[in-house]
């Protein structure tokens, strides 16, 4: 951390310490996903199956539990972002309030509701409903669920193409 502060533009996020913290965060994220049931596509599809509340024409029952995953996570991040006060980019206040390894907070600043947001979200939703995996759980369950032998490479290819189109 101290070395990063001497030269202004060097970011210590990818230093050895940063890499260890990144690894720890990934392990924690995986623990949460697995423990909560997000890596089980049956449970995810059970949560998305709200129609089962209203009709017998669809199989299965509604499983509310994944709402508690999002609820538990968002309670923590609401506190995190409130405590951290990462208020925009070039605020002078950020000198006193910096991340451990980076010069400043770099958080999304966009507030517009545009077509890619809506259409991309809709495409993601259809894929999520079909497969029962969103990106985090797909990676966390990659080695344990044989369906992901097909799903994950396709997902990475889709990300790569979308990134190409965007740039």
């Amino acid at each position: 951390m101290s070395t990063a502060q001497t030269s202004v533009q060097v970011d210590a996020s990818d230093s050895a310490k940063g890499i260890v913290i990144g690894l720890v965060a990934g392990l924690m994220f995986a623990a949460g996903l697995v423990f909560s049931g997000m890596t089980d596509p049956a449970k995810v599809i059970g949560f998305l199956n709200v129609a089962a509340l209203f009709t017998d024409a669809v199989p299965g029952q509604w499983d509310a539990s994944l709402a508690f995953v999002m609820g538990g996570a968002v309670i923590v991040t609401l506190i995190a972002y409130r405590q951290t006060k990462p208020n925009g980019e070039h605020s002078p206040a950020l000198d006193a309030n910096k991340p451990w390894f980076a010069q400043r907070f770099v958080l999304p600043t966009r507030q517009d509701i545009d077509w890619p947001l809506i259409s991309g979200g809709a495409m993601f939703g259809v894929g999520w409903g079909l497969g029962g995996f969103c990106p985090g759980p797909a990676l966390a369950a990659w080695t344990t669920n044989s369906d992901l032998v097909w799903f994950v490479p396709a997902m990475l290819a889709g990300m790569w193409v979308a990134n190409r189109v965007k740039a």
Binding site: S119, F133, F151
Partner: peptide, 17 residues
Amino acid sequence: LLILAGLLVGYGTVRGS
């Protein structure tokens, strides 16, 4: 089905930020 779902999830999440 899995490849279609994966493509949609990958493309859609990057497109939708």
